[in-house]
Simulated assay, not measured.
Amino acid sequence: MKFTLIASAALALAPLSASAAPAPATPVGTWEVTLTGADQGTAYVTFEDDNEFSGYGLSRNSLGLFTLSGTWTVDAAGKLTGNYTETINGDEITGTLTGKVAAKKITGSIASTIGSFKFNAKREVPTQSISGVWTGATAVGKVRMAEFYQITPSAFPHLYEISGEGTSLLTGSYSISGVALVGSKGKIRLAAVSIPDEDEPSFSSLTGTVNVNRKQNVLKGTHSSGLPIKVALAASPR
């Protein structure tokens, strides 16, 4: 009688033990991705439950927004594999990715036609709005410029469009256009084109952290002339 009761209890508990096993981690949802390696940048990537993903971002080498698309699979151990296509500066880059999916992060590497990358992703969170009028004290090498920007939200979350103008003693007045991608903890990446009245356009790629309530925010990066560029940003009162 005792053995019968023990066996019955074991059978009753068996389904409960099996159902208590943790479910495999899934990447489904939107992630903020940091890229390092052959290029450096930030992207927002959405993994769909049909095993496809898409995204967009800005990088040190992109003249504007780049886009991503591809397919993915994850096994029971959380190993991520997939392939992707990136469109950047009018060129198409292909590659494969491998990584590890956990509940709050994805890490891994990418082998592409332009080199190797590492990536680190965390779940998307709300980011601050940088909409409004901003001023910038800009230095390209030893040349100083005064700039004004109007920043407005784009059709993509976390992405803003920039328009404005600037003046310098060297080049005179010029127009400005570009995009800025806002990440968590105030991180921002910006790509902008300056077009003087009678000269060739120049390109700037900048990164840093921004707080709209701070009196001055500093972004640093590279200019198409090869010189370093630094911009001290300030938001106009709201």
Rank of each mutant, 00 (worst) to 15 (best):
L181D: 02
I151S: 01
G115F: 04
N51T: 05
F148C: 06
A234Q: 06
L206K: 02
L16V: 11
N83D: 14
T81F: 03
P27S: 04
K142I: 14
Q128L: 11
L233P: 01
A43N: 01
L190G: 06
T26Y: 04
V33C: 08
A191T: 13
S112L: 01
E147M: 10
A21Q: 14
A139Q: 12
N89L: 04
T171W: 11
E48N: 15
A103F: 08
D39K: 06
T138D: 09
S112M: 00
I151P: 02
S168K: 03
F148E: 12
S205E: 09
G37R: 00
L80Q: 00
S116G: 10
I6C: 12
H223R: 05
S204M: 10
I151Q: 01
T34R: 14
F148S: 11
T152R: 14
I93A: 04
F156S: 15
V28R: 04
P153E: 03
S205Y: 12
A20I: 06
S168M: 03
S204N: 10
P24K: 08
Y160A: 02
S236T: 12
R60H: 11
S194G: 11
S131P: 06
S109K: 15
N120T: 13
A20C: 06
S69V: 09
A180V: 04
E147T: 10
G115H: 04
V218F: 06
V125L: 09
V45W: 01
I114V: 15
K230E: 15
G166P: 00
A137S: 11
S59A: 08
R238V: 15
T207L: 13
H223D: 08
G37S: 01
N51V: 03
G208A: 00
I195P: 09
F156K: 15
S173T: 15
L233Q: 01
A180P: 02
L35D: 09
E161M: 12
P201F: 02
S54E: 15
S154G: 04
V133W: 08
K122M: 11
E48M: 09
V74D: 01
A18P: 00
E52L: 09
T71K: 08
G99L: 00
V143P: 09
S236R: 12
Y149A: 07
L65E: 14
G132M: 04
H158R: 13
A38R: 05
E161H: 12
E92V: 15
F119L: 01
S129E: 07
R60T: 15
K230H: 08
G221Q: 03
T30D: 05
L68Q: 05
P27T: 02
T30H: 06
V101T: 00
A102T: 11
R238A: 12
T107K: 13
I229Y: 04
L159D: 07
G82Y: 00
A137L: 11
A23T: 13
R238P: 14
S225L: 06
A18D: 09
V45M: 03
K230I: 12
E92N: 11
I114H: 13
G115W: 03
P24D: 05
